[in-house]
Simulated scan of single mutants.
Amino acid sequence: MFKPNALIPELSVSDINRSLNFYLNILFFKLEYQRKTDKFALISLNDSQIMIEEINGFWESGILEYPFGRGINFQISVENIDELYENIKNHEYKIKIEMQENWYKANDILIGQKEFLIMDPDGYLLRFAENLGERECEIDLIS
């Protein structure tokens, strides 16, 4: 049974069919449900959930122009980042930041991620990340 997360971003999209094709066929999201007459869908990938709805004049706080996702990126945790990355490449979809390994300081530890960044068809930034675990942080004299 589908259980919605406590926080689910809803993205206004210019073409619901183009977005559904992108998210479902290129990014391996699952269609949880949709309301075709409203041009709305709720999709998921592992524990991540996103709502997408074709622009309807109701939810906008200002003029929407490409890229819609200015100022935000959505990190989406995945278990097999290499498979997803290869599928995106096979569809010849543009990668904004190529696959890389990054370690981020969190208090006294480093949290590792293998990650890459793409933009969806409307310009929302999507950062896919696979957990690499944690390691001790070297002494940082400059904090």
Rank of each mutant, 00 (worst) to 15 (best):
34 Q>Y: 07
36 K>F: 01
90 N>D: 02
24 L>P: 03
13 V>Y: 06
30 K>R: 05
42 L>R: 15
70 R>H: 14
15 D>M: 13
67 P>K: 13
17 N>K: 15
127 R>I: 05
110 L>D: 15
139 I>R: 14
115 E>C: 11
56 N>C: 01
83 E>I: 09
66 Y>V: 02
111 I>A: 03
27 L>Y: 07
46 N>H: 14
84 L>Y: 04
125 L>I: 11
101 E>K: 15
89 K>G: 05
4 P>R: 15
84 L>W: 02
40 F>E: 01
73 N>R: 09
68 F>Y: 06
81 I>G: 04
56 N>T: 00
94 K>C: 02
69 G>F: 01
40 F>G: 00
7 L>M: 12
13 V>C: 05
110 L>R: 10
124 Y>M: 08
141 L>P: 07
29 F>H: 02
142 I>V: 14
1 M>N: 08
14 S>W: 03
92 E>A: 06
61 S>I: 10
30 K>D: 04
37 T>P: 02
85 Y>V: 11
88 I>K: 10
107 N>T: 14
80 N>M: 04
16 I>Y: 05
13 V>R: 11
121 P>F: 15
2 F>D: 02
56 N>D: 11
84 L>P: 02
44 S>Y: 01
137 C>E: 13
123 G>T: 15
36 K>T: 06
60 E>I: 05
104 Y>R: 02
83 E>Y: 07
57 G>D: 02
142 I>Q: 15
18 R>W: 00
109 I>L: 10
10 E>Q: 14
61 S>C: 09
34 Q>I: 04
2 F>Q: 05
141 L>I: 12
109 I>N: 12
89 K>S: 13
132 L>E: 04
135 R>I: 08
79 E>N: 07
62 G>Q: 12
81 I>Y: 08
106 A>G: 00
129 A>G: 04
121 P>C: 10
52 I>F: 08
131 N>S: 09
133 G>V: 07
39 K>V: 00
30 K>W: 08
70 R>M: 13
105 K>H: 02
117 L>D: 04
138 E>M: 07
79 E>A: 02
27 L>M: 13
102 N>Y: 07
24 L>T: 00
9 P>N: 13
9 P>M: 09
42 L>S: 08
42 L>T: 10
137 C>R: 13
10 E>C: 10
108 D>Y: 15
130 E>H: 15
58 F>A: 15
17 N>E: 14
73 N>D: 02
94 K>W: 03
119 M>N: 12
113 Q>G: 04
127 R>K: 06
12 S>F: 08
141 L>R: 04
116 F>S: 12
125 L>M: 10
73 N>S: 06
41 A>N: 03
16 I>K: 15
124 Y>A: 09
101 E>H: 13
26 I>W: 00
5 N>L: 10
22 F>S: 14
64 L>H: 07
105 K>T: 14
137 C>N: 12
106 A>R: 08
117 L>W: 09
113 Q>K: 11
68 F>K: 11
62 G>R: 09
115 E>Y: 01
12 S>G: 09
51 M>A: 13
103 W>P: 13
132 L>P: 00
89 K>M: 11
139 I>G: 13
96 K>P: 01
43 I>V: 12
32 E>G: 00
134 E>W: 07
53 E>W: 01
5 N>F: 14
123 G>Q: 12
68 F>S: 04
